[in-house]
């Protein structure tokens, strides 16, 4: 992959995590809130771990990513303690039920959700220490396109954009794609369509988004952006149940359609990003 981010103009943030580290980082983002980023991040992490990968999920929305709730984990030591120098980075990393590691932001981090150069620097520093120890680091970013979200995304070579078929979610996903194209000169964005009604819907939505992009954004652009459809996750009552029980799908209902879709998504990511065969 070409180093698209190094050619990015510095706009809102300055991405400068070393390239070999960025290659291991996936940012899960959406534009609209509540479409399933955290659900996807956590369950995808478990599915990738099951495939033998060493995975870490980080609450990259600095306390707003509700990862703690989904995983039913309320750790004593959080990213906040690392930021303030109270604890060492290793102490803030916990094992989640699905066999992967998590680094949670802690509620104290909300004050940092207003990005400053210092927050940026400590965040980068933490990532530099963290990423070498894992095969994949998943950043669960928050709702909206904030400076924090854009900054987290800039530290990832791959973006997994979660959208649902709803018009508002699609508009926000499209706006996010445009921001990423303009701000970071990205050439690929990977799509996951969550809560689909029937097979094939997700692929059709991604194709439609691509058509709009080609017509309004890519026309005449030096950096045409392509969307890669990575998978659909069907709307499935088991998801709500799992979340209510504070469990991963793999624990509460491993055979349900959504769980199968997540396994397939993990396989697609494994093949596409780590070049490993299914």
């Amino acid at each position: 992959m070409s180093d698209v981010l190094n050619t990015a103009q510095d706009r809102v943030v300055t991405p400068n995590l070393p390239l070999q580290l960025r290659h291991k980082v996936i940012a899960v983002t959406s534009g609209k809130g509540g479409v399933g980023k955290t659900f996807v991040s956590a369950n995808l992490a478990a599915a990738l771990a099951k495939r033998g990968l060493k995975v870490l999920v980080l609450d990259a929305d600095l306390g707003l990513a509700n990862l703690d709730v989904v995983l039913n984990l309320y750790p004593k030591i959080t990213l906040h303690d690392v930021f303030t120098g109270k604890s060492k980075l290793e102490e803030a990393i916990y094992k989640a039920p699905g066999g992967f590691s998590v680094l949670l932001a802690g509620s104290g981090m909300v004050e940092y959700s207003r990005m400053t150069s210092e927050v940026r620097d400590s965040f980068l520093h933490i990532m530099e220490g963290l990423v070498p120890n894992y095969d994949i680091v998943i950043l669960d970013t928050g709702a909206g396109i904030s400076d924090v979200v854009l900054f987290s995304v800039s530290m990832a070579s791959e973006v997994l954009l979660v959208a649902t078929p709803e018009p508002t979610a699609l508009t926000d996903a499209y706006a996010t794609v445009k921001v990423l194209a303009a701000q970071q000169k990205r050439q690929t964005i990977r799509m996951v369509i969550n809560q689909t009604a029937k097979p094939g819907d997700g692929r059709a939505i991604t194709a439609q988004l691509q058509l709009v992009l080609d017509r309004f954004v890519n026309a005449g652009s030096e950096h045409p952006l392509s969307l890669i459809h990575m998978g659909d996750i069907p709307a499935d009552p088991s998801v709500r149940q799992a979340i209510m029980r504070r469990q991963l799908l793999a624990q509460s209902d491993p055979g349900c359609p959504a769980a199968q879709a997540i396994s397939q998504l993990a396989k697609n990511i494994d093949v596409a990003l780590l070049r490993r065969e299914g």
Binding site: P167, K178, V179, A182
Partner: peptide, 21 residues
């Protein structure tokens, strides 16, 4: 003036986005 990012989503874009629905 810093060259602005253009990310507004126009009515035409929205129209095409939802066209298939």
């Amino acid at each position: 003036i810093e060259e602005p990012l253009s990310v507004s989503v126009s009515a035409d874009e929205k129209g095409m986005l939802f066209g298939h629905f």
